[in-house]
């Protein structure tokens, strides 16, 4: 086969990766932007979403789309609830101290992983796609579901953008992000905003996981890569910037897809991680961010 079809395939795969990554990273970015803490357990919320999607979809008999749609609602809600609980029980008591929060969320990471291993098991399990359509492209047929994932992610990101920039909730969140004390003085319940943002961040990861799980099987260790990639995206995109996050997700997703087709995925990850570490060292405001003065 010639270069063309390979490249198209790699780009499409990259777009799917980018779509899911943008959603996951958006959650991490939101939490970091508003609360100024790094949630290391973010990848585990993603994994939890995928595992729950498997559980819900197998609980529903009949057409796979019924189970999928149910999972699309149930999984994020359960994950959001779990995040809310951990925020109330742990993070709030730590006063959102950045370093203590990282240590605590590492603890959460291990707990969630172990619970998944105990109750779900060490196997990777597939979830059936809600529909099975092949769309004929010039050189090959392509999964209609994967294209749906891309569209769904775009819709969700637009919705998030609308909420953040055009609604009162978004205003409250941005005010809290800008200046916690002043927001408090203006009667914004900062405490509740934090809890809500933490839950929302986890829910975004869970939605992304539900979308990806018919393509990638659910496994209790599947949270590692999304965590690392989300970090990379958030750092490159500039912390707390929605636009930067989306652009960086596209960049990383596409290059990951393309490089993985032509090179070893391990080498690709190695280079990407090293490069991003360098970005953080030499340009901590991200490639698209503005220096803080």
């Amino acid at each position: 086969m010639a270069f063309g079809p390979y490249f198209l395939l790699a780009s499409l795969e990259g777009l799917v990766t980018a779509a899911v990554l943008a959603l996951t990273a958006l959650g991490l970015s939101l939490v970091f932007g508003v609360m100024r803490v790094v949630n290391v357990a973010h990848g585990e919320f993603f994994m939890l979403g995928a595992v729950l999607a498997w559980a819900v979809s197998t609980a529903f008999a009949g057409h796979p789309s019924v189970g999928f749609v149910a999972a699309l609602f149930v999984a994020p809600l359960v994950v959001g609830g779990a995040a809310l609980l951990s925020e109330r029980l742990v993070l709030r008591r730590l006063g959102y101290d950045p370093e203590a929060t990282i240590v605590a969320t590492i603890g959460m990471l291990y707990i969630i992983q172990q619970l998944a291993l105990t109750f779900y098991g060490a196997d990777a399990r597939p979830v059936q796609a809600p529909f099975n359509v092949r769309i004929q492209l010039p050189w090959f047929g392509y999964s209609g579901y994967k294209l749906f994932v891309i569209v769904a992610a775009i819709v969700l990101i637009l919705a998030a953008w609308f909420v953040l920039t055009r609604t009162k909730i978004g205003l409250v969140m941005r005010a809290t992000q800008y200046d916690r004390e002043t927001a408090q003085a203006f009667g914004i319940p900062v405490d509740r905003v934090y809890a809500g943002v933490f839950a929302l961040g986890a829910m975004l990861a869970a939605v992304a996981a539900v979308l990806i799980v018919p393509i990638q099987q659910a496994h209790y260790l599947m949270g590692r890569d999304p965590l690392l990639l989300s970090f990379i995206v958030v750092i490159i995109g500039g912390l707390g910037s929605l636009r930067g996050t989306v652009i960086a997700a596209l960049l990383i997703g596409l290059s990951d897809g393309i490089i993985s087709v032509f090179f070893s995925p391990t080498l690709a990850k190695m280079l990407a991680t090293g490069l991003v570490a360098m970005v953080l060292v030499f340009r901590p405001q991200g490639l698209f961010g503005v220096p803080a003065r």
Binding site: A104, I106, G107, L109, I111, Q113, Q114, L117
Partner: peptide, 8 residues
Amino acid sequence: LLVVGVTL
């Protein structure tokens, strides 16, 4: 892992 996590 649970022991490690809870201890942390």
